[in-house]
Design a binder for these strands. Structure first.
Length: 275
DNA sequence: CGCCAGGGGAGCT
DNA sequence: AGCTCCCCTGGC
């Protein structure tokens, strides 16, 4: 167990921002997260965070995972003070960070995300992990499951994952797994590409369109210039940015701004009482 | 080329 | 009871 004081970090906001589907609230101020083959719990009170791992594991894995070497105050302070909508959204979601998640896991997660809600996406992924992942035990002796490797899904019948509640997305996931295992598409090469090329390559995967490709780029490749446009974002943009979102002002980290807007639309507007 | 139906089913109002 | 859901594919 280690403790850290961290600025611009709110584990609840990160969990609720819908970029990670393997994070869950376990107690009032405590969240769990499964990443790679690891399990972690984070208790947060204000800026004080307690991580359930040791110093070494924190430094070698979780520091990078939570993007703690990046100072988000620069992003936050760059917001145009005249842009009241964005100022408000950023104020509301100041503790959000763009996690460094695994490319394959993000690809499958956002294939499943299409035309789907976050609660159900979590359940689909949980089902996948329980059935095709590896069983592990956390520090309390409770079991959890790792995310299945591509090989575990590539040779299934295309409809098999309907058993995991994926519905019509089953064949997207199975065919994508096959493309990766048979190396029609190389994740290793994609990881070395710039945003534009990586996105173009991801679009070749069956079931990956414009929006999903951008989510994979932002959350699985940490290309902060990716700006996924889902229905919420499109609606918010058409309402608040009639002349388009000022992408140029936030060039290179538009995706961070997208997350503030998304989180505000999801959890803030109409949930925060108007005083 | 653009348009749009169809594709699970749970969770929300 | 309906509507929505961080859409994409394929048919027209």
């Amino acid at each position: 167990m280690i403790q850290r004081t961290i600025e611009n970090f709110d584990i609840r906001q990160i969990c609720d921002s819908g970029q990670c589907f393997r994070m869950a609230q376990v107690k009032e101020n405590t969240y769990s997260v499964i990443a790679a083959d690891r399990y972690l719990e984070i208790e947060q009170n204000g800026k004080e965070c307690t991580f359930s791992c040791g110093e070494e594991e924190f430094e070698e894995f979780w520091r990078s995972y939570f993007d703690l070497d990046c100072d988000y105050s620069g992003y936050i302070e760059s917001v145009n003070p005249n842009d009241k909508y964005l100022m408000n959204a950023v104020q509301f979601g100041m503790g959000i960070r763009i996690l460094h998640q695994e490319l394959w896991e993000m690809t499958v997660s956002f294939l499943i995300s299409q035309q789907n809600n976050i609660v159900r996406i979590r359940r689909c992924i949980q089902n996948l992990c329980e059935r095709y992942g590896e069983e592990k035990r956390n520090f309390r002796g409770e079991c959890y499951y790792t995310f299945p490797v591509p090989e575990a899904l590539a040779f299934l019948p295309e409809d098999e994952l309907k058993e995991c509640n994926l519905g019509y997305r089953s064949k997207y996931v199975v065919r994508t797994a096959r493309s990766i295992v048979q190396e029609e598409i190389s994740f290793r090469r994609i990881q070395e590409m710039k945003y534009r090329d990586a996105k173009a390559e991801l679009l070749k995967l069956y079931g990956v369109g414009e929006k999903v490709a951008d989510c994979i780029c932002l959350f699985g490749l940490h290309h902060l210039e990716a700006f996924p446009k889902d229905t919420h974002i499109l609606q918010a943009l058409s309402e608040h940015y009639k002349r388009g979102f000022p992408r140029r002002r936030y060039k290179g980290y538009e995706g961070v701004m997208q997350q503030y807007v998304f989180y505000w639309e999801l959890k803030g507007v109409s949930h925060v009482p108007i005083i």
